[in-house]
């Protein structure tokens, strides 16, 4: 972060982690609201990590960095805690990731069928990666896109109204590439 020391008239340079994540992903906003509810308390780290995993399905570096910036904790600390508990999953090892939202809205719109179809297609269970390390399948709990349920996140991009067929089609593209 650079701070302007020479000219106090100029507005300070924006801090690294902005309220809105540069990627425009709504889930960062939801995560931030959650942290705000916890008053950005540093000892709420575990709770925040839980929420993040619920939203994203796993904890990728940019999510960990976002949390570390918001709670004003060293990244190493956030990483240390995230890897201490088996409950948390860091970036899965698959080349591609498919995160199916299993929150209430998505579930009633058939997200379970989507998971089932992909599980059968890839012959893995949710939370696992194919043996060729091509695809990791994960689930999340309400990613804040209920209006477009059931939502699936393919390599970080949220795609609306998925069906077993549309999901399998996307996965096929990855598998065949």
């Amino acid at each position: 972060m650079s701070v302007n020391l020479t000219n106090p008239e100029q507005p300070p340079v924006k801090p690294v982690a902005e309220a809105k994540h540069p990627s425009g992903d709504k889930r960062f906003k939801i995560l931030e609201v959650h942290m705000k509810k916890l008053q950005f308390k540093q000892d709420a780290l575990i709770e925040v990590l839980h929420k993040a995993q619920e939203l994203f399905g796993y904890l990728e570096d940019d999510v960990l960095l976002f949390i570390s910036a918001k709670l004003k904790l060293p990244p190493s600390r956030v990483y240390g805690v995230a890897t201490f508990y088996h409950f948390f999953t860091l970036k899965p090892k698959g080349e591609h990731t498919c995160v199916v939202c299993m929150g209430t809205a998505c579930y009633v719109k058939g997200a379970d069928k989507v998971v089932e179809a992909v599980q059968n297609q890839l012959k893995i269970r949710a939370g696992e990666t194919t043996t060729d390390n091509k695809v990791s399948l994960l689930t999340a709990r309400c990613i804040g896109a209920c209006g477009i349920a059931p939502a699936v996140v393919y390599d970080g991009t949220v795609i609306p109204r998925q069906t077993p067929e549309s999901a399998m089609e996307q996965i096929n593209k990855w598998v065949q590439s």
Binding site: L73, P74, P75, S76, R77, V78, Y79, T83
Partner: peptide, 19 residues
């Protein structure tokens, strides 16, 4: 705050930032 302990048990490891 660069360094921390990641993982647990015999897989614990000293890391820098995000490993």
């Amino acid at each position: 705050g660069t360094k921390n302990v990641a993982g647990r048990g015999s897989k614990s490891k000293i890391i820098s930032d995000l490993n």
